[in-house]
Design a protein around this nucleic acid. Structure first.
Lengths: 242, 242
DNA sequence: GCAAAAGTGTTTCAATTACACCCATGT
DNA sequence: ACATGGGTGTAATTGAAACACTTTTGC
C-alpha cells in the first residue's frame, strides 16, 4: 500500500438505466430511470444517478454493470458508454464521471429493487438532481431516442420472443409518437433484423399474432470498429454518432 | 498539499488530430495524423497519440487543446470527445484515457511542427503504436467518416471562404470515393449549410467558381443537447452516434 | 475553337408515407 | 354478426443517383 501526491482528480462511473413501465396516469408505456438518494455531502438528500468510484482492477463497463447490479438487482441487455463528464466546476471536489447508459427488459424491471433510497422516475420528469446529472439524463435520453431510429436496440426492452405489436410499442414509447403498423412491419422485416419463429400467441380476442425473434446474424450498416458493450447480449453497433 | 491512499487509477487525455495533405505518391488529398515518439517506458521509442495526464484545474477539452497546441502548434477548428478507454490491461499501470478527435485546416497544418519526436503519418497507414492506440485511431477514423456524411464538419478543414470544389474535395478525401459534382452541389445548397458570398475566384483556366461561406445560423436535424466542443468554432452537433 | 471545370436540367429508381382493405380470432 | 387488432396491397410523394447538356473562362 503506497501513498502519493494527491492528484485531486478522481474517477467515477455512473449509469443511466432505462426501463419501460406504464405511466400511472395515462397508462401508456414510458421510459423510467432509477435514481439513488445521496446520503452525504455534497448534494446530501438529493437524487442522483447510481454509480461509484472506479476500482483499480475493474474495467469501465464492468464497473457500470456492478453498480447496476448493486442498486437495482438487474442485468442490462444493453450497455454502452455515453460520455465522460469532466468540467472543473461540476463538483466541489474534482471528479471525472464516465457515464454509461443501459437498457433493461420490462419484465425484469418489474421486480427491481425499490426502496427508500432508490426510486424510479419517469425519464421525462426527473426532479432536480445532484451535480450535472440533469444534463446527463437529458443527453442519455437524446442518445437513446436518436439510436432507436437507426439501430436495433429496441430488442433490449423485450424478451426472447415478441410480437410486432410489442416491438412497435417499444418504439412508440421511446419516440413518443404513433407509428403506422403496416409500414413498421415492412421496414423491420425488410431490414432482416428479426425473423419469424413459426409460433403464435393464442388467446387474444382477435387474429393471433406471430412471434418473432431477434436475428443475431444481421448487422447494421454503420457499425463501428468497436463493440462498446461488454455484455451478455451483443448490441450490434455504436454510435453514429455515435 | 495532502497525500492519500494510492488509487492506482490515473487519468490521461489524448487527441487524434486530423489534417488533409496531398499523398506524396498519388498526389490526392488524404488524411494525416501527427504522432509523438515515446521517450520512456512502457513502449519507449514507439509512436503514440499526443496527450498527457489531466491537470486538476483543467477541463477535459481544455486539456486536449493544450496538448494539441504543445505538440503541433495548431488550434483545431473542431474538437469532440471520442471515447474513454479504460480496459485494465491496456497499460502496465492503470490508465484511463479520455480521447478527443480534432480537425485542423489544411493551410494551418502545412506550418505544423514536424521534428524528430513528432511526425505526421497517413491516417490509413500508421505504424504499430503504443498501448491500444491503433484501435483508437481506427475508431476515430470511423467516427470522422461516419460523421462526414450527416454533419457539416467538412468546413473545419477549410478557411472562411471556399468553392464547392474545395468542399467536395474534402468529402472525397475523407470518404475516399468520387462524388458527383452536380448532385453534391444540390445536396449542400438545399441543406442551407453554406451560402454564397457573391465573390468569385478569378484566374482559373475555366469558368470562375463562386465562393461560399459556412452558414452559422443553420443547425442540423440530429443535434444533441450537448455541445461537445469547447472551441472557437462551434461544431453544431454531436453524435448520432454513434 | 478547344479544353476544363462550373453550373443547370432531366430521367430513373428506391424508400417512405398514407390509407384502403382483407383476415382470423373471441365474444 | 361484429369488434379488434393482425396482416397485405397500392398509389402518391420524396429524395438520391446517373448523366446529358449548357456556360464561362484561359489558352
Amino acid at each position: 500500500m503506497t501513498t502519493q501526491i494527491e492528484t485531486e482528480v478522481s474517477l467515477a462511473v455512473s449509469t443511466v438505466i432505462f426501463a419501460l413501465r406504464p405511466d400511472p396516469e395515462s397508462g401508456l408505456m414510458t421510459l423510467w430511470i432509477p435514481l439513488v438518494k445521496r446520503i452525504r455531502e455534497p448534494y446530501g438528500g438529493q437524487w442522483a444517478l447510481p454509480g461509484g468510484p472506479l476500482i483499480a482492477g475493474e474495467d469501465l463497463a464492468a464497473s457500470a454493470n456492478h453498480t447496476l447490479e448493486r442498486t437495482t438487482g438487474l442485468t442490462p441487455k444493453y450497455l454502452e458508454q455515453l460520455y465522460a463528464f469532466g468540467a472543473v466546476d461540476r463538483s466541489p471536489d474534482r471528479v471525472v464521471s464516465i457515464v454509461y447508459w443501459a437498457l433493461v427488459p420490462s419484465d425484469e424491471a418489474a421486480r427491481a429493487i425499490d426502496g427508500k433510497n432508490i426510486q424510479w422516475f419517469p425519464a421525462d420528469k426527473v426532479p432536480p438532481l445532484a451535480f450535472d446529472h440533469n444534463t446527463i439524463v437529458e443527453y442519455a435520453l437524446w442518445r437513446l431516442r436518436n439510436k432507436m431510429e437507426y439501430s436495433r436496440i429496441a430488442n433490449a426492452f423485450l424478451g426472447q420472443m415478441f410480437t410486432l405489436a410489442d416491438l412497435r410499442e417499444v418504439h412508440e414509447a421511446v419516440l413518443r409518437k404513433p407509428i403506422d403498423p403496416a409500414n413498421f412491419r415492412r421496414q423491420i422485416l425488410t431490414s432482416k433484423a428479426i425473423e419469424a419463429t413459426g409460433t403464435c400467441v393464442i388467446g387474444t380476442s382477435h387474429r393471433p399474432p406471430r412471434l418473432y425473434r431477434y436475428n443475431a446474424a444481421v448487422q447494421f450498416a454503420d457499425v463501428g470498429p468497436l463493440t462498446h458493450t461488454a455484455n451478455p447480449v451483443r448490441s450490434t453497433d455504436d454510435d453514429l454518432g455515435q
